[in-house]
Amino acid sequence: MLVSKYTQYLSLNDDSTVIWHSVFGCAMQIPNRLTCYLKDSHSFNDYDFIEVFGEGAFETLVDARILIYSTEQEQADIDTLFAKHNPRNKSKIKYLSLIMSEECPFRCVYCIHFANSKHYYNKEKMMTFEIAKASIDSYIKLMLENGETDFYINFGGGEPLLNYPVIAELLPYIKECEDKHDIKIKLGINTNLSLLNKEMAETFIKNNVEIVASLDGTKAGNDKVRLSKNLSGTYDSIIRGFDILRELGHPLDGFAMTVTEANLFDVDTEIIDWASTLGMKEVRIDVDVVGIVKSPMDEVIERLTRIRKYAKEKGISVIGFWSRPAENLGLNPEEEDIGFCGGERGNSLCVAPSGQVFPCGYSNYQLGNYIDIPTIYNNDAYLNLLANRDLKNQPEKCQECPIFGFCRGGCLITKEANQKSTEKQTAMCKLYIEMTKAIIRQQVMM
């Protein structure tokens, strides 16, 4: 009997430790005398273990793959995960995102659309009805052929409301598609709200389009990073949008914010108090996935951990990319396709106004063109995207990482935008690992 090399240890106190397998997960709290045994024993006899710790503990640790019979078998089991969740000749597409506009009236300092997306420079700035319609048709056909039932179309950008007339034309068309195919399509729009008026809001409410908006903290913090084109603050224009939705009886139940070096020290629990007074349920706090290299990551981790705990006591979930590995740790990799995001998993198609298709709206990795959508899952570019997910193809530092199977290399854009420097990626690795540990500690205390 062996202890898996993928076993991870997080000391809680003098009495206990949380352990998990860095590919198969299954976090559990064990007494420290068992921790010492696992750390000290290179190989041992089953009966000796059972004699000391009992049959129940033995079976639990075997089921969790902490105790293994051979490293070869363990590696073979890990290798089967990739084939199982990334089958050849079968579409994994689940989501369609339409980049309605490459332009935006905002110039947020951390914007990954402007920092990374080369398609922003294309001459085609606005999505046409024709390209959107053809993309929707192909997407629905692909989903139906694959037996998928959870349809999701997102209007994104840039700022999609710059192209509101085309969105308004697409909504009845999508309804027609739902009726024709007897399906239900979930809709969402990511907007900065600055252009939202009552008519648009009513249209979105009527068509069940979920509105997703961002606000980077209180006025002081927001107006340091979330800027208009003329570099003035945007807080008031965003709040005006919040107010329109609330007056129509559809207040937002949360929002997303981004932490950068400029607003880090403004991000604190008072934004949670504000969200709580408005009856919100979820606040997403992301750390700038491209910049924020120089700031002390320890400060970011301390703040996120503290805010998450504070919000939880007020009934508000605080999530972000940093919570994804911990969320994944609760899943069974044999049943679920564990990934960092839909783009990384190969679930998303994002169509730009030029017709180019990307796995993420901020990526430069082109999967094909919108006319390729019906067969895109067999394209070399798409297959390469999937091949990069194979755990055995990951660098050694990832294979030795405590969240190896749960982070999946992190954000595609972080890697694309920082190809010449490992500094940012190293900082993000630290964020994801330390936040996973912090979340485990908070979960144990619950």
């Binding site: 949380v18 299954c26 976090a27 559990m28 709290q29 064990i30 007494p31 005398r33 068992l34 004699e51 000391v52 710790f53 009992g54 129940g56 503990a57 639990t60 640790l61 689940k94 989501y95 369609l96 995102s97 999701y152 179309i153 997102n154 994104g156 969402g188 990511n190 979920e210 997703v212 949360g254 929002f255 997303a256 979820e282 997403r284 979930s317 999530i319 990319f321 919570s323 994804r324 911990a326 969320e327 994944n328 740790l329 609760g330 899943l331 995001c341 839909g342 783009g343 679930n347 998303s348 994002c350 796995p359 993420c360 709206g361 979340i439 485990i440 979960q443 144990v444 619950m446």
Partner: peptide, 30 residues
């Protein structure tokens, strides 16, 4: 026979937070 250590140990599963599948992010981030 001399008992050197208790035979039973308690192992408690840690309940991790549910996968946040909300729309507080673009569709590709699900």
């Amino acid at each position: 026979m001399k008992e050197t250590a208790p035979k039973k140990v308690e192992i408690k599963m840690v309940k991790m937070p549910a996968l946040a599948m909300t729309c507080k992010k673009p569709s590709n981030c699900h």
